[in-house]
């Protein structure tokens, strides 16, 4: 079977999918990055291969997410693109007439507005933790409730407690106050979902037209309480696509397919066993000017002391930049 591989390596989760020629998901992996993107990708590839019921001839590989460049080097990606484009691509694939994509991940959140299948506006939050999944993660541990159960508990609440969602610190002291005066836990849990939605709509989506059909994706879409809070706030139906937590990876596989279809190039994919290669990342301070940039270098072990240097980046200028040669100039 021919197929395309998409990999999305974010700060919290690492997702991989294999799509077949008809752009259907054949296998998918959602796992934690745990601060080790290379290991996460390698382990993910091995797991993904185990899931495949028949061997897949990979025709193209896409990488996205904040570790996309690193991932591109490690697996030999053909398309290295930003996660906003990847998410828009995947949302449109799941729902061709989508107008609004709400995406909330562990450390960031996005809103993408589409018209006739074309993205026309977007915003991305990476600054305010109160507008991302880490907000719920943090409060759930404070409440002693596993994050997986959060959504279910939120759904049992008749109403949500009023919790200030503007800032993670305010929210926490507000929440503790509600606990101390006796608010039921499920109402506090749902109140937190509402606070996150309010923060998202007031900051990130401010000034944007949130038009239906609305697709809600990213890891936080696993939380039914969030879907409910969005629907109540927007007074519109919100759809969660089947593969909501691996949409970035799907989008990146779709992008790889498009790019490969336009060239005669064969894929640079190193194979599912690129997990077997040993990669070494090292850093050094550049002494050329007072910026003292920290340069990161990625090398593949080849028995030599330094290894085979594949890529280098991290400087303010391009003095040390070494782009991976594998990446197709489509």
């Amino acid at each position: 079977m021919d197929g395309y591989l998409g990999i999305d390596v974010g700060s919290v989760s690492t997702n991989l999918v294999v799509l077949d020629e008809n752009e259907e998901v054949v296998a998918k992996i959602y796992r934690r990055t745990q601060g080790k993107p290379i290991e996460a990708v390698q382990a993910g590839l091995t797991e993904l291969e185990d899931l495949l019921t028949e061997p897949v001839n990979v025709l193209g590989v896409g990488a996205t997410g904040s570790a996309r460049h690193l991932t591109g080097v490690v697996v030999g990606a053909d398309a290295v693109r930003n996660e906003i484009t990847a998410h828009a691509m995947a949302a449109r694939h799941a729902q061709p007439d989508v107008r609004t994509v709400l995406e909330i991940g562990g450390q960031d959140s996005k809103v993408i507005v589409l018209q006739d299948g074309i993205p026309i506006d977007f915003a991305m939050n990476t600054v305010c933790a109160a507008g991302t999944g880490s907000f719920l993660d943090h409060q759930s541990s404070r409440l002693g409730i596993p994050i997986e159960e959060f959504g279910g508990i939120a759904m049992t609440a008749e109403r949500g407690s009023q919790i200030a969602g503007r800032c993670g610190v305010f929210a926490e002291s507000d929440m503790i106050h509600k606990q101390q005066v006796g608010h039921p836990t499920n109402e506090i849990v749902y109140g937190l979902c509402q606070a996150l939605v309010r923060n998202y709509l007031n900051n990130l989506a401010k000034g944007k037209d949130i038009l239906a059909p609305i697709v809600f994706q990213g890891g936080v879409a696993a939380n039914e309480g969030m879907k409910r809070a969005f629907e109540e706030a927007l007074e519109q139906e919100v759809t969660i696509p089947e593969h909501f937590n691996v949409m970035g990876a799907i989008g990146s596989a779709l992008l790889a397919k498009r790019i490969m279809s336009r060239t005669d190039n064969t894929t640079h994919f190193k194979g599912f066993h690129s997990a077997d290669f040993e990669y070494k990342t090292s850093s050094f301070g550049c002494a050329a000017c007072a910026n003292s940039c920290e340069i990161i270098q990625i090398a593949q072990e080849d028995g030599s002391e330094k290894g085979d240097v594949l890529a280098r980046w991290g400087g303010r200028c391009d003095k040390w930049d070494l782009a991976p040669t594998s990446i197709t100039q489509a």
Partner: peptide, 17 residues
């Protein structure tokens, strides 16, 4: 990095339009 991600998305968006 945050700048670049947004600018890349912006370029993609302009080409798509």
């Amino acid at each position: 990095a945050g700048f670049i991600t947004r600018l890349e998305a912006m370029l993609d968006m302009m080409w798509a339009r």
